[in-house]
């Protein structure tokens, strides 16, 4: 088992009355598995993902339960241990490719960062690997992208760069928090295809978060449906699509726009 999350509760204490955003979240993931996490905004899916990635370190956020990743207790291990995993075994990509890259640093520097932190590679080896990973995320002319700044690239290209930077150390788990929401529909499909290929070739497990069930259906076998901080339904994507147990899931499925083609 790669990841085991049990009874995860997340509470925020930034107001007078504490506010719970995630209740009793459970999740098991095996190596190389793709799991979808679907729900509306505010359903707690991003918070759960941030907690798993060890990025929910705001001191007003209280986390209970356990997150065990590769035998390490993410919630209670020393920060050193956590940092050793971040960018090496767990990577994360975010919703906004326009703002997720540092605007004043070259792409090459940012893609190489996780290697500088976690490996002893020489600058030449790092550059070679960076170009290789930029090529593998289907960016034309990786040499030019390597020497560019983020503002010189389109949104789709930046998200590919984010994926490249996340995959540079071939992590065991990639958390993708709505990676396609800010992109055009055609680019969305390409990014989903790319994630699928990465999963197949590198055997990286992917936790794919989206509010779009149709994307989840293209990519994942298993899905968790969240609403109001609770996981309301989980299981095989196709089963849930065909036979949703909960009314909420049914409404989510109905909200997918359908192209009606029958003309008789």
């Amino acid at each position: 088992m790669l990841l085991h999350v049990e009874d995860l509760n997340i509470e925020f204490h930034d107001h007078i009355v504490p506010e719970t955003v995630v209740y009793d979240f459970d999740l098991d993931m095996d190596e190389g598995e793709i799991v979808g996490l679907v729900g509306e905004s505010g359903s707690g899916k991003s918070m759960s993902a941030l907690a798993i990635a060890g990025l929910l370190s705001r001191h007003d956020a209280k986390k209970r339960g356990s997150i065990i990743f590769m035998g390490e207790d993410i919630l209670n291990c020393p920060r050193e241990t956590l940092r050793g995993l971040q960018g090496d075994e767990i990577s994360m990509i975010f919703q906004e490719p326009m703002t997720s890259l540092n605007p004043v640093k070259k792409i090459g520097w940012q893609v190489e960062e996780a290697m500088r932190i976690h490996t002893d590679k020489t600058p030449e080896e790092r550059k070679k690997r960076a170009l290789e990973v930029l090529r593998s995320v289907e960016l034309n002319d990786p040499e030019r992208v390597y020497n560019s700044y983020p503002h010189q690239l389109s949104g789709g290209m930046r998200q590919r760069v984010m994926i490249a930077a996340a995959m540079v150390n071939t992590p065991k788990l990639l958390i993708a928090d709505e990676p396609t929401t800010a992109l055009d529909v055609t680019v969305q499909a390409e990014v989903v295809k790319l994630l699928k290929r990465i999963n197949r070739e590198e055997n990286t497990a992917i936790l794919f978060i989206s509010h779009d069930l149709s994307l989840i259906r293209q990519l994942c076998k298993r899905v968790l449906v969240m609403k109001g901080g609770y996981v309301v339904e989980s299981g095989d994507v196709e089963k849930i699509f065909v036979n949703p147990e909960k009314d909420y899931t049914k409404r989510l499925i109905d909200s997918i726009p359908k192209v009606i083609l029958d003309r008789d």
Binding site: Q86, G87, F94, S100, N102, A166
Partner: peptide
């Protein structure tokens, strides 16, 4: 508080 700071943390930066 910007997104790229979170990205930097996600790569294992102190």
């Amino acid at each position: 508080r910007k997104d790229y700071a979170r990205t930097a943390y996600s790569r294992g930066n102190s």
